[in-house]
Design a protein around this nucleic acid. Structure first.
Lengths: 120, 120
DNA sequence: ATAAAGCATGAACAATTATTCATATATTCA
DNA sequence: TGAATATATGAATAATTGTTCATGCTTTAT
């Protein structure tokens, strides 16, 4: 008895069903993969990468970052919000100045792995 | 003699000039940071993350991937091109079938670091 | 109190990008 | 040779997103 399967989106046929089934069983849940992509998306912007790299060197306030990266205070502030939501940076307030610093020790490791790939 | 500096984009003042100068000296070249962001941008899409994850389990052809991920063959093919340009996957041809596989051993490590962060 | 400085934020705009659709190429098979 | 299958790709569309601009909040200093 042959198998007549209706395929939704794919406009071609499953060629190696055994492999597909095996891999399908090992795939992480949809949500994990989505979260993972969301995390890397944060690293996937030069501005945020620069901010993270800078904060890995020293705790800094928003104005310092804006000056260092030659950006408007607003743009930096917006991106810091994204980084904070992702729990990559934290901040503390001292008077009217807000200091930001890295929250996660993995940041440097992730960068280093990335560099490894780039430098083959 | 005080320093009168003209600031380009930043609409506020440098507060901690010593720190900024120190960090500025340690920042990687602009180009490295850009390339790094470009790499992570590739990981920053669920579709591509899924493809990479799947290929980490087994070598697969385009149709298999399309079926596994419930996507059109065209969409998968487009993303595979991106992954190949970034040297994250490679392919070999066998008749009319093209098999894709991971090219970089770091992929799994990068995913694992990402998961570590997500799971605190 | 009022001004000024540091920072946050909503809305608008511009740019990027993932997917779809149509079609082209390449290979196998009858 | 012609049909069918696997894959690639250009163009168009829709959705996402980074920055700017204007403005609001908070704290300090006068």
């Amino acid at each position: 008895m042959f198998k007549m399967q209706t395929i939704d989106r794919c406009d071609c046929n499953v060629i190696h069903e055994d492999i597909v089934d095996k891999v399908k069983g090992k795939m992480p849940p949809e949500e994990s993969l989505y979260d993972l992509a969301e995390l890397f998306k944060v690293f996937g912007d030069s501005t945020r990468s620069k901010i993270l790299w800078a904060l890995d060197e020293a705790e800094m306030c928003v104005c310092d970052l804006a000056y260092l990266l030659n950006m408007t205070q607003s743009a930096v502030s917006h991106q810091l919000r994204v980084l904070k939501q992702t729990k990559l940076v934290k901040n503390r307030k001292e008077g009217k100045i807000v200091f930001y610093s890295l929250e996660d020790e993995h940041v440097r490791q992730i960068f280093e792995l990335g560099l490894k790939h780039i430098n083959e």
